Amino acid sequence: MTLLTPGLALSALDLLRLLHRNALTASGLLSDLKRVGGMPSAEALSLSQTLNWLEVDGDGVLHPTPAGQRACSQGDYRLALRQVILDFADIVAPDWLQNATYGRSRVLAFAGPGIAQILVEAEVATGVADDVVEFWDLLASMARGYRDDRLLAIGRRGERLTLAHEEARTGASPRWIALDSNQDGYDVLSVKAADDPAPLSIEVKTSTVGTTGSMYITRKEWEQATDSPNHTFHLWDLKAPSPLLAVVDVAEMARHIPTDGGTGEWREVRVPFGTFTSLFNAVSL
């Protein structure tokens, strides 16, 4: 898709308004109208389709979707551009979106000149008016959802690898605890060995950036680890061509867990994957 710019955004909005007044098919639009709002009609059509602003009826005629109607009904130029950004972030989930959780200066620095200019013209690049703050809060909320979805997908990959590894190691089918509930403080329930059916709880941590990544251990996860008779941590490095696994026991992990002090109480700790570099090995699955 063509890079998003203020001109392209406004052309897509103009296209929606045009379709309110005229019955056009996609082919008719492209053949009869070369430009919309100063931009090639093909680019305006492409952006509108990307943002799910258009639908086609049984006769092939283009109509604005509810999302498209919402975008083009914004009477104020600034509000219309804000809606473009929000729809673009929601549908496309561009790389720059993750910066919204760190504040608008990060977005303006990393989003590229087209997006930055839209934000300037939408009058959200500066200022602290309530509507400006609300815009950035919405964008940050989208970013957190996108980031959480991505982290969940990465975590699930590691959990699946642990399930396969444990079945190969023990000959028994482990239970995927985290799939049913994330409140138990561990992810997989296996057994100690093929000849030892004692339960083994496993907390799985996964990195796609190798040993430069970090894991986060919550207090609940640590309490589960220390309360369980048999518990271990599986650390998966997915950066390598083939997955690498480090199996870390509770005693080894304990060296990197903080203690409470005074009235203070720790809730979460970050531990670098690189701490356990020597423990990573290739596994056959």
Rank of each mutant, 00 (worst) to 15 (best):
T2P: 10
P6D: 10
L8H: 06
A9I: 03
A9M: 05
L10A: 12
L15F: 02
L18D: 02
L18M: 13
L19I: 08
R21H: 11
A23N: 07
A23W: 08
L24P: 05
T25E: 02
A26F: 07
S27N: 13
S31A: 14
D32N: 12
L33E: 08
K34Q: 12
G38H: 05
S41I: 04
S41W: 06
A44Q: 00
L45D: 03
T50A: 15
V56N: 09
P66R: 10
P66L: 06
P66C: 05
S73Q: 12
Q74I: 03
G75D: 13
G75E: 06
G75H: 04
Y77E: 15
A80R: 12
Q83W: 08
D87Q: 14
F88G: 01
A89V: 10
A89L: 01
I91P: 00
A93M: 10
D95P: 00
Q98Y: 11
A100M: 01
G103W: 08
R104W: 08
R104I: 13
S105F: 13
P113Y: 06
I115K: 03
A116D: 02
Q117E: 15
I118T: 06
L119H: 00
E123A: 14
V124R: 01
T126G: 09
G127A: 09
S141Y: 07
M142K: 15
M142S: 09
G145V: 11
D148A: 12
D148S: 13
R150K: 15
L152F: 08
G155F: 02
R160I: 09
T162F: 05
L163A: 01
H165S: 10
H165V: 10
G171S: 10
W176H: 12
L179H: 14
N182R: 08
Q183I: 11
Q183A: 15
G185P: 02
Y186P: 04
A193T: 13
A193P: 07
L200E: 01
L200D: 01
V204R: 03
S207D: 02
S207C: 09
G210D: 01
G210W: 00
S214N: 14
I217P: 03
I217C: 11
T218C: 05
F233T: 05
F233C: 11
H234D: 07
K239S: 14
A240C: 06
P241M: 00
S242V: 13
S242G: 05
P243H: 00
A246I: 02
A251H: 04
E252W: 04
M253V: 09
H256V: 10
I257G: 06
D260S: 10
G262H: 02
E268I: 12
T275H: 07
F276L: 02
T277M: 13
S278R: 14
L285R: 13
